[in-house]
Design a binder for these strands. Structure first.
Length: 550
RNA sequence: UGGGGCGUGGCCAAGUGGUUAAGGCACCGGACUUUGACUCCGGCAUCGCAGGUUCGAAUCCUGCCGCCCCAGCCA
C-alpha cells in the first residue's frame, strides 16, 4: 500500500521542478558504491531513493562502482553488491565502473593542466598537511604550484609511465589555498600507486584518480541529471562544480545531499561492520544480526519490507536516528499479510491428556491464515501427548494471566480445550509434565456454560519435528553504540543477541524450504535459514506484544 | 574562535504567510478475537529560544542557543 503512493521529499520536489521548467526532459540517477564492503540498510535508503526516483519519473538509474582506490576494493564485493541491488528489486540501466573511465579521466586531467588549473606537486603527504593550514588559518601555496604547463604535462605523463615512487608526487588542482573550505585548498587529483593490482584494470595503471575528480566526471559522462549523495559531501559540492566548470564536460549534473540513515541499537559504518566480522562478534557479513542487506535477507526480511521502511523514514537533510521499531513494523506488516501460520513450541513442556485414548492419533486442520481463506489450510496431528510452551503454564496466577493454570481451562489453538488436573514435578521441584483432560465437544465450538480464558499453541509429541530455532535480539544493549567517545562500540555488544533453542514444530514445517517464512503463532515470524542444510529457523521479529507479562 | 549544514510531539516526517499543525512508528485507553496477533475506534505538539515585521508566522527578518560535517596522496 505504502509503496503505491509516491513519497514526497525535497529531492523529488527539485526533480519535479526541473521536469516542469524543462531543465530536464528525462531523469538519470546513479547508485555509486565503492566495492570495499557489503551493502547495509543505509545503502538501501540510497538505492531506494535513486532507483525509486528513476522509476517514478520514467527515468533511469545506473549502478556504478566507485573503484578508484585499489587498496581497499575487491571483486567479491562487486558481486555481493550486484546481488543485493537485484534482491532489493531493482534493475540498473547501465552497469559501470569508475575505472572504465580511467583513460578519459586521464585526458581530462591533461586538459586541466593545459588550462593551468592543475600541477604536479612534490610535497610529501606530511608536508601537504602542514601547507594546508587549519580550519581557522589559511594554508600556504606549494613551492611547485607555478610550474609551466609543459613541465606539468611532462611530469604527469612520467607519473603515468611509472617513473616516480608512491607518494613522491601528486597531481593537484590549482584553486585557493586560503579558501575557508578545506576541500578547495588545492586538493589532490591523482596519486601514485605502483605495484597494486586493481580488480578491474589489473596493472594497467599506476596512478589513480581521487574521488573528487572522478565522481563529477563519471556522472557527467553518464549523463546523470541528479547526483544524490549524503550530507558529508556537502562541502565537496564546490569542488564537484569546479571540476566540471574547468574541463570540457558533456554536461553538469547537480549534486544534492541528503542525511544518511542512522538506526538505533546497531552500527552502520563499513569500518565497524568489518570489525564485527573480523573480530568474530558475528558469524559473517550475512549474520542475521547484521544491518547488512545480506544479514537482513538471511534474517528473513523481505525486499518489499525494506523498500517500505525506506519510504517510511523519508529523505531530508536533518540527521537523526530511526528507531528499530520502524523497521520491525515494516516487516510485521508484510509478513502478517503473507506468512502462513504454523505452531511451534520453543520451550517444550510435556502434557498428557489422560482421557484421550493411548495409541490414537487424529488429524485436525488449521487455516494457513486467519483472514485469507485462499491460503488454504494444513493438517494438524493430535494425540494423547503434546508439547506446550513452558511459559504457558503456571500453577497459579492472577486474572490477567490468560493461559493454563492448575485447575484451569484453556483452548488449544485449532483443537480442544483442556483442563489441568495435576502437575508432575521431579525431585528438584521442576515441572516435568502436566496431566490434563480434554473436552471432546469443544472442537470448533465453545463449551457450554463456561468461558475459556485463553488460547495456547501446541504440537503433538508423536508427530513433532524437532528443529533448531535461533532467536535474535538487538546486537547492542544501547541505542547508540558508537556514541561514546571513551568506550569502543564493542563494549556495548549484547551478549544475548542470539539464543539457540531446540524447538518442537508441527509436522507441516518439515517441508519448509530455505527462505520460507511463517508466523509461529503467538511467537513471531520465522524464516527457514538459507545457509544451513539442517532444519533451522531464524526469528525475523517477534509479534507485537501488548501484554505486560505480569 | 574558519566554512558548510541542521533544529516541527518519545522517534521519523508533511508543512513553502491565513489548515482544528498531515501521516507513520511508539505509547495510553477501549471494541473485537480459537494468535495477549491482526483489525477497528479514541487519546497524544503551537513548531530550539528571544525579539521584530504583519490584520495574521512553524512559515519572513534579527540575535542567540544546541547538534552534525570538514584539516586522507579514503570514499
Amino acid at each position: 500500500m505504502t509503496e503505491n503512493n509516491k513519497p514526497k521529499n525535497f529531492i523529488r520536489q527539485i526533480i519535479e521542478d526541473d521536469l516542469a521548467t524543462g531543465k530536464h526532459s528525462r531523469i538519470h540517477t546513479r547508485f555509486p558504491p565503492e566495492p570495499n564492503g557489503y551493502l547495509h540498510i543505509g545503502h538501501a535508503k540510497s538505492i531506494v531513493l535513486n532507483f525509486g526516483v528513476a522509476q517514478d519519473y520514467d527515468g533511469q538509474c545506473n549502478l556504478r562502482f566507485d573503484d578508484t582506490n585499489p587498496h581497499k576494493e575487491d571483486e567479491e564485493y562487486v558481486e555481493a553488491i550486484k546481488e543485493d541491488v537485484r534482491w532489493l528489486g531493482y534493475q540498473w540501466a547501465g552497469l559501470y565502473f569508475a575505472s572504465d573511465y580511467f583513460e578519459q579521466l586521464y585526458q581530462f586531467a591533461e586538459e586541466l593542466i593545459e588550462r593551468g588549473k592543475a600541477y604536479v606537486c612534490e610535497l610529501s603527504a606530511d608536508e601537504v598537511r602542514e601547507y594546508r593550514g587549519t580550519l581557522t588559518e589559511p594554508g600556504r601555496e606549494s613551492p611547485w604550484r607555478d610550474r609551466s604547463v609543459e613541465e606539468n604535462l611532462d611530469l604527469f605523463r612520467r607519473m603515468r609511465r611509472g617513473e616516480f615512487e608512491d607518494g613522491s608526487r601528486t597531481l593537484r588542482a590549482k584553486i585557493d589555498m586560503a579558501s575557508p573550505n578545506m576541500n578547495m585548498r588545492d586538493p589532490a587529483l591523482y596519486r601514485i600507486r605502483r605495484g597494486v593490482v586493481h580488480h578491474q584494470t589489473g596493472d594497467e595503471w599506476c596512478i589513480y584518480p581521487m574521488y573528487d575528480f572522478t565522481h563529477p566526471i563519471s556522472d557527467a559522462l553518464e549523463g546523470i541529471t541528479h547526483s544524490l549523495c549524503t550530507l558529508e559531501f556537502e562541502d565537496h559540492r564546490p569542488l564537484y562544480d569546479w571540476v566540471l566548470d574547468n574541463i570540457s564536460a558533456p554536461c553538469h549534473p547537480r549534486q544534492i545531499e541528503f542525511a544518511r540513515l542512522n538506526l538505533e541499537y546497531t552500527v552502520m559504518s563499513k569500518r565497524k561492520l568489518t570489525q564485527l566480522v573480523d573480530e568474530k562478534h558475528v558469524a559473517g557479513w550475512d549474520d542475521p544480526r547484521m544491518p547488512t542487506i545480506a544479514g537482513l535477507r538471511r534474517r528473513g526480511y523481505t525486499p518489499a519490507s525494506i523498500r517500505d521502511f525506506c519510504s517510511r523514514i523519508g529523505v531530508t537533510k536533518s540527521d537523526g536516528t530511526v528507531e528499530m521499531s520502524v523497521l520491525e513494523a515494516a516487516i510485521r506488516e508484510d509478513l502478517d499479510r503473507s506468512a502462513p501460520r504454523r505452531m511451534a513450541v520453543l520451550d517444550p513442556l510435556r502434557v498428557v491428556i489422560t482421557n484421550y485414548p493411548e495409541h490414537e492419533e487424529e488429524t485436525l486442520s488449521g487455516p494457513n491464515h486467519p483472514k485469507d481463506e485462499s491460503m488454504g489450510s494444513r493438517a494438524l496431528k493430535f494425540s494423547r501427548e503434546l508439547w506446550i510452551e513452558r511459559a504457558d503454564f503456571r500453577e497459579e496466577a492472577n486474572k490477567k494471566y490468560k493461559r493454563l493454570i492448575l485447575g484451569g481451562e484453556v483452548r488449544l489453538r485449532n483443537a480442544y480445550t483442556i483442563i489441568c488436573q495435576k502437575v508432575v514435578k521431579d525431585v528438584s521441584g521442576e515441572i516435568k509434565e502436566l496431566h490434563c483432560t480434554y473436552d471432546p465437544n469443544t472442537l470448533g465450538r465453545n463449551p457450554e456454560g463456561r468461558k475459556v480464558r485463553g488460547v495456547i499453541h501446541w504440537v503433538s509429541a508423536l508427530a513433532a519435528v524437532p528443529a533448531e530455532v535461533r532467536l535474535y535480539d538487538r546486537l547492542f544493549t544501547v541505542s547508540a553504540p558508537d556514541g561514546d567517545k571513551d568506550r569502543p562500540f564493542q563494549e556495548f555488544l549484547n551478549p544475548d543477541s542470539l539464543k539457540v533453542v531446540q524447538a518442537m514444530l508441527e509436522p507441516a514445517l518439515a517441508e519448509a524450504q530455505p527462505g520460507d517464512r511463517f508466523q509461529f503463532e503467538r511467537e513471531g515470524y520465522f524464516c527457514r535459514d538459507i545457509v544451513s542444510k539442517d532444519l533451522v529457523f531464524n526469528r525475523v521479529v517477534t509479534l507485537r506484544d501488548s501484554w505486560g507479562g505480569g
